[in-house]
């Protein structure tokens, strides 16, 4: 610790702060990229699922803390409930807003997605509150980092560890299991997969559910770190996560993870070494640069359109 000079430790602080932010972007970007990979749709209501996940987590945590559960139990149960609830939302949204439009023009489900996003936001304003509400610091006491806490806060370490675990779990699911194989088959050629006996409707629903659960999980972690939520928290996060998905190559799962981390680090270093005024300038500047040299994103497959 002492061996590091002052600017070196500042670099590390910025690195961890960017990594934390980036891993949240990555978690949410996975939802965008999975849905795009399987049905070629950009689910603009994904940011709102994130927001609803945070509200469910807050409600569950509130009830459990009245019942005097201990902190870890509250955290685990709140996260589980939020994920299940968000998965149910993801499932329903797909059935209500996208499935009836499957096979119509490409723009129709996109408009439907934007409408869904507005609907959910207004719904939370009416059903919950238009105000900011405070979110309990569920993850604060999990680690005692001692001297290293100046480098990375305990809540940030929790975000890092859990989001990496979640992503690793997802990679295994996609690469090693039968479900993952079916998903990959549908994303390659949906009709052929159906001919070979893959239930494509069920797999599409499952994709939505997994993506939504990941977003809700990210929402719990970041809300416990930031300490406040409102109906609009999904908006900026949604846009950034979408950017991360495009950056990494939309449709590619490792790409989404990589894109999120790159975006988070870029923002953090831009703020630290230039000015937070230019945070977004650098974030979107990187996007433009990468799309100029690799139009399909860093890990995206460039497919030539057959005429």
């Amino acid at each position: 610790m002492q061996a590091l000079n002052e600017s070196g430790s500042f670099f590390l602080e910025l690195f961890f702060s960017g990594l934390t932010r980036g891993s949240i972007y990555a978690l949410i970007a996975l939802g965008y990229t999975m849905v795009y990979g399987i049905i070629g749709l950009i689910n603009f209501a994904h940011g709102e699922i994130y927001m609803i996940g945070a509200f469910v987590g807050l409600t569950v945590a509130g009830i459990l803390s009245i019942l005097q559960f201990n902190l870890i139990a509250i955290l685990v149960l709140a996260a589980l409930f939020a994920m299940v609830y968000a998965a149910a939302y993801g499932y329903t949204i797909e059935k209500v807003a996208y499935k009836p439009l499957r096979g119509s023009t490409r723009l129709a489900p996109l408009i439907s997605a934007i409408g869904m996003s507005m609907f959910l936001r207004e719904y939370v304003i009416l059903a919950q509150t238009p105000d900011f509400v405070s979110f309990p610091a569920l993850t604060e006491g999990l680690f005692d980092l001692g001297a290293f806490s100046s480098m990375i806060q305990p809540t940030e370490l929790v975000i890092l560890i859990f989001s990496f675990l979640m992503m690793a779990g997802l990679f295994i699911l996609i690469k090693k299991t039968k479900i993952g194989k079916a998903m990959r088959a549908i994303s390659q050629d949906r009709e052929m997969a159906m001919l070979l006996g893959v239930n494509s409707d069920r797999m599409i629903s499952l994709t939505f559910m997994i993506g939504s659960a990941l977003a809700a999980f990210g929402a719990i972690l970041i809300s416990a770190h930031v300490g406040q939520i409102n109906y609009n928290i999904g908006f900026v996060v949604g846009i950034k996560a979408f950017t991360a998905a495009v950056l990494g190559g939309i449709g590619s799962i490792p790409g989404a993870a990589l894109g999120g981390i790159i975006l988070g680090l870029t923002e953090s270093f831009a703020t630290g070494y230039v000015s937070s005024d230019y945070e977004d300038v650098f974030a979107f500047g990187i996007l433009v640069l990468i799309l100029i040299f690799k139009p399909a994103g860093i890990l995206g497959k460039s497919t030539t359109e057959k005429v």
């Binding site: 910025l14 702060s17 609009n232 703020t271 630290g272 937070s276």
Partner: peptide, 14 residues
């Protein structure tokens, strides 16, 4: 700062 950003930890460290 950008209102609505995920967090402000980089700026606070600065």
């Amino acid at each position: 700062i950008t209102p609505g950003a995920v967090d402000y930890s980089a700026l606070i460290r600065k």
